[in-house]
Amino acid sequence: HSIEQTDVAGLPAQDTWNPSSLQLVSKFKNPSSSCSVDVSAVWWDRAGAKEPCIVTACEDVVSLWKPLDALQWEKVHTWHFTEVPVLQIVPVPDVYSLICVALGNLEIREIRALLCSSGDESEKQVLLKSGNIKAVLGLTKRRLVSSIGTFCSQQVQIMTFAEDGGSKDEQLLMPPDETILTFAEVQGIQDALLGTTTVNNIVIWNLKTGQLLKKVHVDDSYQASVCHRAYSEMGLLFVVLSHPCAKESQAFGSPVFQLLVINPKTAQSVGVLLCCLPQGQAGRLLEGDVKDHVAAAVLTSGTIAVWDLTLGHCTALLPPVSNQNWSLVKWSVTDSHLLAGQKDGNIFIYRY
């Protein structure tokens, strides 16, 4: 019942990562005049069959791309946004033929569902939420959690989707009286939800009852942590965090991801793995995504780095292509592909 203290992943790893672990599958360019902001994958119903499609988001347009063959993609739908720019795509597991997007300037002001009319296949938008939205996450079983407001005036809401993209059912969770930064579902416990807060706490809810079960204070050495993944095993909660505000240290370089173990009963926690950049790599985390045991990050240097959290080291580095820095990285939710994007609309799909 004790845990090894923090191991540091990726430090002397220059010779252990394998550049060939990422193989280019296909690429396409989204010809948009505005800046590329996000990419994602979604299942889309076409003539009664569900197809794995790619969604690209620019500031003023979201596009759906369907596969023509293994190498080519065709744009089939576009949704336009003239008033408020798109900030991010919000993937919702277990839904198909529906895309959620967050809109706003610096902060999220609206969440919209994008879908097509069943009759004429024309694109339509449904406003789901509006206000001072601090955090949003799509959950399994067609649900979406969002927090609106700050501190004591905060509302944490779970919305369940109806077939037409609207909201079918709403439920409130007990707010933690501190501003929520990010949410994460807990694999292994169906009704558990985690949140990270601005004062470095991890909060745990019961989604069924709305109860706030526990607050766990985590190490103050990293502020404003983002929670990417959580799973419960053998009575312990394993949490993958990233630290966008972390400063470089001489000993470890720049920490990008951290695996933390929490005992939810006692609120004790300990770091078990710190994913740092391989020697010779500089930069900090711009954005990251974690799926199962693999974590990918775009670094300020323009390179994408991938860590295997079970092996405990960096397994792939993807330097900028055609002298253009990477700006987006996402794991596909429809297969094991890595989606990598550049600001000008280039999307590259790699097999990992």
């Binding site: 004790s2 416990i189 019961n206 079960l213 419960s232 009575g235 939810p264 009963k265 004790q268």
Partner: peptide, 21 residues
């Protein structure tokens, strides 16, 4: 090595029965 205190496999149910509704 770090001691995390007593561990319960049913932590979620136990915390749910203790927390205010």
């Amino acid at each position: 090595r770090a001691d995390l205190g007593p561990i319960s496999l049913n932590w979620f149910e136990e915390l749910s029965s203790e927390a205010p509704l």
